[in-house]
Nucleic acid binder design. Structure first.
Lengths: 359, 359
DNA sequence: TTGTATGCGTTATCAC
DNA sequence: GTGATAACGCATACAA
């Protein structure tokens, strides 16, 4: 006869343990603990005793067994391109908050800007049977091949934070074109005519969208852009690398072609790098030169002086992304060809921009 | 006779599906796909055909079923107090990186600074059968009651980022006392004798540790601290709130008791708030007043001027925390009463501190 | 070399 | 009111 210990030292407490300990059957206990419909027919005393035993032994239901049996994971995968990018973080927080009011648990994975990790975690999420998927992207990386993979799985997916060309995946992002427009409009309205630009990496569609907005405004007011004041960020996989690049580009511009009264940066971190260079040349912000960023990451409000920027509504983006997935999960309507949703950007005016200095 | 569809539209592909499609049995397929020991006896052609079918149908093993059967989750819970706090984020990234080389998957949960969420997610992690647990804390929240709960579960746990009084949980954190010492030493060595302080919340043990270090150095060099220059942060649940508090405290000090040549802040964000106030009073950093922070979050390097600070080795903290858990997982040695591990802080000298101005 | 049978912990269906 | 039993998808001991 095989001897089996009453309760093994390290293993978790199971329903069977509770059954042995309480004298009731496994099914009764399951019904009671889950408050299943049938539990209304169970004697109050029984319920109390079962709850007591469960508490005493420290019972925690086995989520794996439960999911296996119910054929549901109650889980939504959240695949973040880079957790250390505050832009992603803010969107993620909002997704989390939205999901915390639901029955769904976010499974958060961080691709750490690496193609390989992205694929690996995507696989893991699939193996864990996520019922929905949200991909939080920033402006880096994201080969198209990954998205081709994504589309073949039949689970509701939403992409938030950036746009992918030639993809039918529903995506949620800011209206970059309008953002570029607002940024230049702000500088222009302060009297700036000599404006320098640091464009984003040209591999990136966001860069050209913002630039289109800038050109649109320039055309409207007949403003000439000077080629020598148009700088260009290179592609990088480190969100903070643009600080150093912004600094160096600005420094070079100051040496070769000074004289601009304002600088429009691709994003906030780039803007901070530019400010560093300007201050090193004893150019005061905003008295001598105005600087405007893009995104409104937390850095922007905390920097000195506070950075004027074009705000992406990150909370709203996260919330909408989560809600879209939830909707498709509940209504089971599979309108595959959803439009990309463009959210309006907003000018946040702080202290890094001011009226153009008198000469 | 019950009709059953070859493959239902939405359900996942299972081993049974592959068996039906390929003609081999479930067990053979399992052996092949897992490259189990027995697979060396399987004909190469069989393997190839099985792999082909698996790929064609898009098979993903069901992690839940697998874990249930193997009685292992291959999972480590990472419970973060606040994902939007860059201090936590950096530690988390390091944990992730360390874990990505192992067979363990980090399950990341964000307590969002809320007691209730912390407990909820802790429960969920337990239900998912995490084999180890890492709690990433900042200086906020963390009632002792939570930790009491933690200790009762038998799974290897490490606390990283802060210290809990009266807890036997192994924790990894910076040597705050030494950090305080280094900070004041730095200012003193630059000639500063009139130093203002913004202390951390007094509910927090980190605050008093750092203060002890400050007092130790002051005693060594016989430096008098002036009470009216000693300010105090209140407890908050928002990591960025200390910016505003730092700003206001500094502003008040400037009105009531100006004349200090340096300011030592409890952390970087507080320091940035102080700098904002100083600049609003046309006090230049560092020519007129030096400012030093604590932590070295990414903000610090990006701010203008770059912030001198006491660095917590966050990468190392995360790595050590992960390794500790891994060790206890593999060696199954249960030395419960581990010491708290104190890591040395490091002075990072940037541009916000300089020699004391001549009067 | 490959197939059959069993059980992981849970829930759902049905029987008593 | 409560208990026995089957099945979820997989891995493995054992049989063939």
């Amino acid at each position: 006869m095989k001897k089996r210990p009453e309760r093994s030292a390290s293993a978790r407490v199971t329903l069977a343990d509770l059954a042995r300990e309480s004298g009731f059957s496994v099914s009764t206990i399951s019904i009671v603990l889950n408050e299943a419909p049938l539990s209304q027919f169970i004697a109050a005393g029984t319920k109390a005793r079962i709850h007591a035993v469960a508490k005493r032994l420290g019972y925690h239901p086995n989520a794996y067994a439960r999911s296996l049996r119910k054929r549901r994971s109650h889980t939504i995968g959240v695949l973040v391109i880079d957790l250390s990018d505050p832009f992603c973080t803010l969107i993620l927080k909002s997704i989390e908050k939205t999901l915390s009011d639901t029955e769904f648990l976010p499974l958060i994975m961080d691709a750490a800007n690496q193609h390989k990790q992205f694929k690996r975690y995507l696989n893991i999420l699939l193996e864990h049977g996520v019922e929905g998927l949200i991909v939080v992207a920033n402006w880096l990386l994201m080969d198209t091949s990954l998205l081709a993979d994504l589309e073949q799985y039949k689970i509701p997916t939403t992409l938030v934070g950036t746009e992918i060309q030639d993809s039918t995946l529903p995506s949620i992002l800011v209206d970059n074109e309008q953002g570029g427009y607002l940024a230049l409009q702000h500088l222009y309205s302060l009297g700036h005519r000599a404006v320098a630009f640091i464009r984003g990496p040209h591999q990136l569609i966001d860069s050209s969208r913002r630039w289109q907005g800038i050109l649109r405004f320039a055309a409207e007011v007949d403003l000439q852009l000077r080629d020598q004041w148009i700088m260009q960020l290179s592609k990088s996989s480190d969100p903070n690398a643009s600080f150093e690049e912004g600094r160096i580009l600005t420094q070079e511009a100051l040496q070769k072609q000074p004289g601009f009264s304002a600088l429009l940066a691709f994003d906030d971190v780039t803007a901070l790098g530019a400010i560093r260079a300007l201050q090193q040349h004893n150019i005061r912000i905003p008295q001598d030169c105005s600087v405007i960023g893009f995104d409104d990451v937390p850095y922007a409000a905390l920097s000195n002086p506070g950075l004027t920027t074009i705000r992406q509504p990150m909370e709203e983006m996260g919330r909408l992304a989560a809600n879209r997935v939830l909707e498709r999960l509940s209504s089971s309507k599979n309108d595959l060809a959803e439009q990309a949703l463009l959210l309006p950007p907003e000018l946040v005016s702080r202290k890094s921009t001011a009226v153009v200095p008198l000469r």
